[in-house]
Amino acid sequence: MRVLFTSPAGTGHFTPLTPFVDACTARGDEVLAVVPPPLAQLLTERGMPFRTGAAPDPAATAAIRDRLPHASREEAAVLVNRELFGRLNTEAMLPALEEACRDWQPDLVLHDPCEYASAVVAERLGIPHAQVATSPARIEAYSLDLAAPVLACYEPQLVDRLKATPYLTRFPASLDPSPYAATRRFRDTPRPATAPAALPNEWRTDDRPLVYVTFGTVSGGMPAGAAACRTAVEALSGLPVHVLLSGGRATDLSDLGPLPDNVHVEEWVPGPDALAAASVVVCHGGSGTTYGALAAGTPLVVMPLFADQPANARLVEDSGAGLAVFPTGGPADTMGLPGPADVPRLRAAVETLLAEPSYREAAGRIATEMRTGPTVHETLAALTADAGANLWG
């Protein structure tokens, strides 16, 4: 069987697909990824066959990102989901995906829910396709509805089709009730967690709790991401904890200035190890980090910056597995930039999670639920059997 994988730029978008890439490879399927240029390095490192499509016009994407900190939350959602994912990304990736589907002729397309160009092509050519969730289902459905006016220009029934085709998610039902009719939940196969190699040796024999801080791979090159890193360092510098901060490859770490003794900064840290080793995770609420922390049973402090992050922050807080700290560096109805006013609020949230065991207990209950259900291999087998039998299309 030939299986095509595709996602928007950003490691957090492609990573949820990787268990299915590995499962396909293990059973002898041919795999191919078609991705935007920023993902080329990731796939080269994985040794996966891939083709690159085009990137949107940099000026157009920069104009969107520059508006996000000053936009209302509703306007920011439209900018990201309709204009960036729906319009610019789809327009850029459509030629490469059409070419790949016509000459490589996949039997199945698995794509990130916000990667719409592959769904457009699959619908036109009659190729079975399914979505592998990045975010909680109600957030993805909301994003799809926002993109609908643009997507209708490509295929009038595309939104309805996306709501009806298989939707594969790692998030458990208690945390994430799904509006998608064909939702299939699966569990990742956990790997043994080890202490992050990036930890200084002297920390390994110290019993102070570890706070892992990450604001993702995309936000690092944006003003909001840099401001969040500075705010977190200042907030945690006076606490009796070790702080491991993963700045991201796009972050200029020199902007952080002299670091406190309890803070260690790395450009990149393997997420599963850090998430499992930490007593608290401080993040922006990107779905990859949110899922990974909950799967490890680690409570979170979420400081959302844009996109689906505010909704993820509320999801975490409502579940009892953490706290949300919304930045106050802008007008009340905007996301704003993290800044000095947020330092004591972030510090207090971390102190609360360290002192109150109920947050770790709630995260542990979610982690237990995440370990139930079909494996990736079982989910893939059922999915491809249905595709081969043309049970959806």
Rank of each mutant, 00 (worst) to 15 (best):
M370W: 08
P166H: 07
D103V: 14
R204G: 05
T217V: 01
A164G: 01
W203Q: 08
R371W: 00
A197C: 04
A277Q: 10
D318W: 02
M303C: 07
A276G: 02
E123T: 15
R371F: 00
A71I: 09
S72T: 15
P177S: 08
R67P: 00
R249E: 14
R347T: 09
P310I: 02
V243P: 04
A55H: 13
L253C: 01
F50E: 14
A100K: 13
P344I: 01
G330C: 10
E378R: 13
L323H: 03
A324S: 11
A9Y: 09
L84N: 09
A26P: 00
L239Y: 04
L68Q: 02
G225P: 07
L383S: 06
A76W: 03
V241E: 10
L305R: 04
Q131L: 13
V376L: 06
R184L: 07
S118W: 12
T165K: 12
D206C: 09
A77D: 12
P304W: 10
H264R: 06
E98Q: 13
P331G: 04
D318S: 11
P149N: 11
A382P: 00
R102M: 02
A295H: 12
T6C: 13
R360F: 02
C24E: 03
V265N: 04
E361F: 04
Q131D: 00
A295T: 01
S254I: 00
L146V: 03
T25F: 00
L4F: 05
C283P: 00
A59I: 01
W104P: 08
T384N: 00
A348D: 15
P56M: 03
G28T: 02
R27Q: 13
T15M: 03
A195E: 14
A363F: 03
D145G: 11
S72K: 01
W392E: 01
V241K: 06
P272F: 10
E266Y: 06
A54G: 07
D252L: 02
V31F: 05
G364T: 14
D103Q: 08
P374G: 07
D333Y: 09
L79T: 05
P304D: 12
R185G: 01
H242N: 09
L32Y: 10
L94I: 03
L346A: 11
S358L: 05
V280R: 05
V213I: 12
T169R: 12
A227T: 02
V35W: 14
D386H: 06
F50W: 15
L380T: 06
P196W: 06
Q105Y: 00
R65Q: 14
L323D: 02
V263K: 08
G271T: 01
V21F: 13
G216I: 06
R87L: 13
V233M: 03
R249N: 11
T217M: 07
V31A: 04
V265Q: 08
E30K: 12
L391S: 12
A148L: 04
P128C: 10
Y142N: 08
G286N: 05
Q309N: 11
S237M: 03
L144P: 03
L79G: 05
T90Y: 05
T217K: 08
I139K: 00
A182L: 03
E74T: 14
L383V: 01
Q157W: 09
I139P: 00
L125W: 13
A311G: 11
T289Y: 10
